[in-house]
Design a protein around this nucleic acid. Structure first.
Lengths: 231, 231
DNA sequence: CCGGCTTTGTGAACGCGTGCACGAGCGCTA
DNA sequence: TAGCGCTCGTGCACGCGTTCACAAAGCCGG
């Protein structure tokens, strides 16, 4: 008999896909679909069916052969594994353009990540209200984090202030950081950091665009010299 | 003699790191540092030195043994490879909270991705000005894309509208898409899509937080039963 | 109750990315 | 000009992630 909580480590690549499955499954549940095959889930998620099955197998064997997976049960299992059985309040550092948009974006709270607070160094910004949350001074960070039991911090400051923001967050006990500033943060190894760098994403797209362009040029030039006679 | 343009394909993993190197190198150039070793670059970028050298070797061999890399030349080479020798105008679809923040965020233009236009379906939003760009109706998408030679589109719509936005973008000739909506887009294979899903990022952090918490619990419980007598 | 159909779960092979280790090459100094 | 120290470039091995392919297992119709 396998141990009930065989908490074997889940590969990082799988962890990154589980939220996608979860969203799709939740949508299916809303459509009153209570059973789904790995094939269908793979199609909706844009991935390989074998990968879906292997990913889900890390949670335990919750499928039924010949039938598929029970949507609601799978939703429950994924939510449990991702730690989404309760809310994770987040604190946003930086009330500039991006910080304001994040605070105003309702999607966070809906998905279990309510904005516990937003702080800024600039006294001029303190006091204004964004998305129902009042901007407070960064010196109140510790108080917010402790009062609301915040574990996750979001850095939405300019690049120059990001490292300082990270250090403040770590100092007050935050252990996970989502960083929007285009800098490499230096933090203790125990702190989990996810970076979201829009410029990097655009530059990757640029690379592929440039590649398409130069390939197109080459194939035009190459066609004249390498095209077979009439095959 | 190796061909001058041995355009061997660059691994995707490397492509994703080149923008980071580029940013660091540009910073070093601003500090009047004109030479850098792979070791130092690795340290600043938070990666392995061997990886840096291997990544850069895909661009050609532009380093000098015993010395390092010439910063300005490397900047030039990376920019060339990423297709950053000229601007790539982008068009933003969706003038909601996020679209507004993106348009207002100056970082795009600075880094070579000027906002060529921002469009929305909602007539009430059309006409207002965000970050110096007037919001136009989505029916004008084709006109904007053609007039400004846009190849890259940014989807900042609600989930329900994202697929339609993607199809419109593809139809008017956009071939790269950055998607902020939490949905899997269905587009032709030739279209490059990068997704940026904030909820997914937070859920990944949640997983690690939950893991830390359950590990802490287990080690406390386990210590009571498994701690050796006095070893 | 049995045979066929469907779909899961997973062993195994493959390919990509990472990191080590070291030879090759360059500059500096005496 | 010779020797030395430093750093690049890369062959190689290892590990992770992906995918195929198939046996195991459940459902259903006759």
């Amino acid at each position: 008999m396998p141990s009930e909580r065989q908490r074997r480590r889940i590969p990082e690549a799988t962890v990154e896909r589980l939220p996608v499955y979860l969203r799709i499954l939740a949508e299916q549940a809303d459509l009153a679909i209570d059973n789904i095959s790995s094939d269908r889930l793979a199609e909706l998620g844009g991935v390989n069916a074998a990968k879906v099955r292997k990913d889900l197998s890390y949670l335990g064997s919750y499928g039924t052969r010949g039938v598929g997976y029970e949507v609601s049960y799978l939703v429950y299992q994924i939510r449990r594994e991702l730690g989404l059985t309760h809310d994770w309040p987040v604190v946003i550092v930086g009330a500039g353009n991006l910080g304001q948009a994040l605070a105003g974006y309702g999607g966070f709270g809906e998905r279990g990540f309510p904005v516990a607070g937003i702080v800024d160094v600039d006294p001029a910004k303190v006091g204004s209200v964004l998305g129902g949350v009042r901007v407070r001074h960064i010196d109140e960070l510790a108080q917010i984090v402790q009062a609301k039991h915040v574990n996750i911090g979001v850095i939405a400051t300019p690049s120059a202030a990001a490292q300082d923001a990270a250090e403040r967050l770590v100092r007050v006990g935050v252990t996970s950081i989502m960083n929007f500033a285009p800098v490499v943060l230096s933090v203790p190894r125990s702190i989990e950091v996810r970076k979201v760098d829009l410029a990097v994403e655009l530059q990757i797209l640029s690379y592929h665009e440039q590649r398409k362009a130069s390939n197109a040029l080459r194939s035009v030039g190459g066609a004249a010299t390498t095209r077979p006679a009439s095959a």
